[in-house]
Simulated scan of single mutants.
Amino acid sequence: MLSFSLGPLSLSIGHLLLITAFALALLVGGVLGRRYQLPVAGSVADIFLATMICARLGFVIGYFEHYRHDLFGILDIRDGGFDVIWGLAGAVGFTAFLLWRRKLVRRPLAIASITGLLFWGGTAGTIALIEQQARGIPPVTLTALNGDTIAVNQIAQGQPMVINLWATWCPPCIREMPVLDVAQNRYPGVTFVFANQREQAETIRAFLDKQNLKLNNLYRDSQADLARAVGSQGLPTTLFYNAKGQLMDTHMGELSNATLAKGLKKIIPGQP
């Protein structure tokens, strides 16, 4: 499963695990804080904030060329650009700093922080192991706007492939389309596939005309079979497959040039 849906709210599994780990650390910190009569929850929140800042900073530094001409984009975290290693380093470093400076809360804060970290690491690792067993391209058939059908695994013909699940009513899908439109021409060695979810051909054509888009490999996933097969509960969702048909990365939410480059780096040999 790539994402989780609760009513109109959809979250990637990665984000859901992170929020759950933070909530668990807050809960443990609150319980221990009452026991020791000490304010612990605030310190846990400080650690979470420092983690997010470091993770974002690390990602921006790594892909700064894509933000150079759009400095406002650095603050636009809707693209989901975070670096896990930088985030972990920030969490460990700032936790160590707080444990050193705030001696009174040292024990409960350490317990709360370790609880959240172990939960996140354990669940994320388990999910990663499970996903490794099902990383191939799903045996799903898509329909072209003219009515022709094709199996997803026959589209790329041995090339790396990027599959974008989208819909015309989805605002982040609309915002990211220019990025993907440019990319499909910039990377001729990658097959970009646009799988529209549950919409009629007339609706899609009208959208393309209005947005002045020419999308290659545009298909209808009329019953959302592909979305179900990959475990996507929200849009947009982008899947990155290497030339062997193995799923190497996923991204739920709006793509920026930087987050697209991150995914392409995992499927294009030698991509800087």
Rank of each mutant, 00 (worst) to 15 (best):
M1R: 12
L2M: 09
S3F: 00
F4S: 09
P8E: 00
L9F: 14
S10I: 00
I13D: 10
G14L: 07
L17K: 09
I19G: 10
A21Y: 03
F22C: 13
F22D: 00
A25N: 07
L27E: 01
G30C: 06
V31N: 07
L32F: 04
R35H: 13
R35K: 15
Q37T: 11
L38I: 03
A41F: 01
A41T: 10
A41V: 12
G42S: 13
A45Q: 13
F48T: 10
L49Q: 07
A50Q: 10
M52K: 01
M52F: 12
A55M: 04
G58V: 00
V60M: 01
I61R: 08
Y63T: 08
Y67T: 07
Y67Q: 03
H69A: 13
I74T: 08
I74C: 11
I74P: 08
D76A: 09
G80L: 08
F82V: 05
W86I: 01
W86S: 12
G87S: 10
L88S: 09
G90Y: 02
G90S: 10
V92C: 03
T95E: 02
F97A: 15
W100R: 14
R106D: 14
I111Q: 08
I111P: 06
I111D: 05
G116A: 14
W120N: 02
G121I: 10
G122P: 05
L129N: 13
I130D: 14
I137K: 05
P139N: 13
A144C: 11
A144L: 12
A151S: 15
V152W: 02
P160W: 01
L165Y: 09
W166P: 10
W166K: 03
P172K: 00
C173P: 11
R175Q: 15
R175E: 15
V179F: 08
Q184N: 14
N185D: 15
Y187N: 13
V190W: 00
T191Y: 01
V193H: 02
E199I: 00
A201P: 09
E202P: 03
T203V: 10
I204G: 10
A206Y: 03
L208G: 07
D209R: 12
K210T: 09
K210V: 00
Q211K: 13
L213S: 05
K214E: 09
L218M: 08
L218R: 06
R220T: 06
S222Q: 10
Q223Y: 04
D225I: 00
A227L: 04
A227E: 03
R228P: 01
A229H: 04
V230D: 02
V230N: 05
G234D: 08
P236H: 08
P236I: 05
T238H: 09
L239P: 04
N242P: 02
N242G: 10
G245M: 11
L247T: 04
D249M: 07
M252V: 14
M252C: 03
E254M: 14
L255D: 09
S256M: 08
S256P: 10
A258H: 00
A258E: 04
L260Q: 02
G263A: 09
G263E: 06
K265G: 15
K265H: 08
K265P: 05
I267D: 02
I267P: 05
P269E: 12
P269G: 13
